[in-house]
Write a protein that binds this DNA or RNA. Structure first.
Length: 374
RNA sequence: CUGGGAGAAAGUGCU
């Protein structure tokens, strides 16, 4: 049973969930580790309902699988459900607490995250980083830095990395750089954090120094460099980096070169890369839609949009924004009305369209029916 | 004795 379990979980991790599921059903015995692995597989595949179904059918449950299902709920906007399950869990450990903490922090419920943090029986570096990161992501990077500088936990690399992102968020790039150099050990992730901040701020000279100093040009740092050069309009450098320097390219890396072409209006090159890339995710499709929409070629944009599997909110928004730019408010509006879920950006796009066209009454009506306004 | 499952941290898209 043990050997089979290892194999089935191997299938899960390599993305062969269907096959793993068939093996799972055929197994004579299934232990709690296997059940949990399958549960996690559904979670990773973005099927929280199925994960919950697996959990509910488990013959025995332990602290590990409870934490796993808590995570499923907490990261799918069901944090309150997670809380009620948490309260009924027979056993809790630092992981269970951290799942709840991370769930609240992630959804911006910082106060509740703090309550959990205070109430939990022990802290470790993961839980500290989780709360600090909640601060950074929700507009209080200063609190993250205070935690780092005024308490004295045993600082590990994770603490440094989080506080570097906090400093970057506050545009204190010099401080970040100085802290990076004072770290007890070198960390490529920490270097990459600072490098990305420089790249995002358009300081490609500083970014390049850090990049050059990296012993291994990891794919994340390289992608950040491509993105930075793209923003600066240095397409040639992007191409050299991507095609000549980089050895490993994941889908985000491919998207970064696609984005470089898209941002610079190189529709033909963007299409060529799009055709050539090993896999396309929704981000890739959106970029190729965007390059045509931005150029005002809504027919081309529309044909990619029509052929796109699993269109997401961003895809719809991209199309709408394209129509708005051409002054085709009727088309934009009909898309908007066909959207099943839309975001604040969708509303703002339409609003801007009406404003541009001096459609004051329509703009006002739309504004008043917005569920949220910023 | 070792080996299989859960928690945090870096890069890409729409206003």
């Amino acid at each position: 049973v043990f050997g089979f379990t290892v194999m089935v979980l191997g299938l899960v991790h390599s993305g062969h969930l269907e096959q793993a599921w068939r093996w799972f059903l055929d197994m004579p015995e299934r232990d709690v580790v296997l059940w949990t692995g399958i549960l996690q597989g559904f979670m990773d595949a973005g099927q929280p309902e199925k994960a919950k179904g697996v959990f509910d059918r488990m013959p025995q449950q332990d602290v590990v699988c409870c934490s796993a299902i808590l995570q499923v709920l907490a990261r799918n906007d069901r944090i309150d459900e997670a809380k009620s399950l948490f309260d009924r869990c027979p056993q809790l450990n630092v992981v269970s607490w951290t799942v709840m903490l991370g769930g609240y922090a992630h959804s911006g419920r910082i106060h509740e995250a703090e309550l959990v943090f205070r109430k939990m029986p022990q802290h470790d570096s993961v839980s500290c980083v989780a709360i600090m990161n909640g601060y950074v992501e929700h507009g209080r990077p200063d609190l993250a830095t205070s935690m780092f500088f005024y308490s004295n936990p045993e600082r590990d690399i994770g603490h440094y990395i989080t506080v570097l992102t906090a400093l970057a968020e506050m545009n204190k790039l010099k401080d970040a750089r100085a802290l990076l150099e004072r770290m007890p050990e070198h960390s490529p992730v920490a270097c990459t954090v600072v490098l990305s901040s420089y790249a995002q701020a358009g300081h490609m000279d500083e970014a390049w120094k850090l990049y050059a100093a990296l012993p291994v040009k990891n794919v994340v740092a390289s992608t950040a460099m491509v993105h930075g050069y793209a923003q600066a309009g240095h397409i040639k450098t992007c191409e050299e980096l991507f095609f000549d320097v980089m050895t490993e390219r994941d889908s985000m890396a491919w998207n970064s070169i696609l984005g470089a072409y898209s941002q610079n209006g190189a529709a033909a090159k963007a299409e060529a890369v799009f055709a050539k890339m090993p896999q396309r995710d929704s981000c890739s499709w959106n970029l190729v839609i965007q390059v045509h929409a931005e150029a005002g070629d809504m027919d081309q944009a529309g044909s990619f949009f029509a052929g796109m599997p699993g269109r997401c909110v961003v895809s719809w928004n991209t199309m709408m924004a394209g129509y708005v730019r051409c002054g085709k408010m009727d088309d934009a509006l009909s898309l908007f009305q066909r959207m099943s879920h839309c975001s604040l950006i969708s509303w703002n796009t339409m609003l801007e369209g009406f404003a541009q066209g001096r459609k004051v009454a329509e703009a006002r009506a739309l504004f008043q029916s917005m569920p949220v306004q910023d």
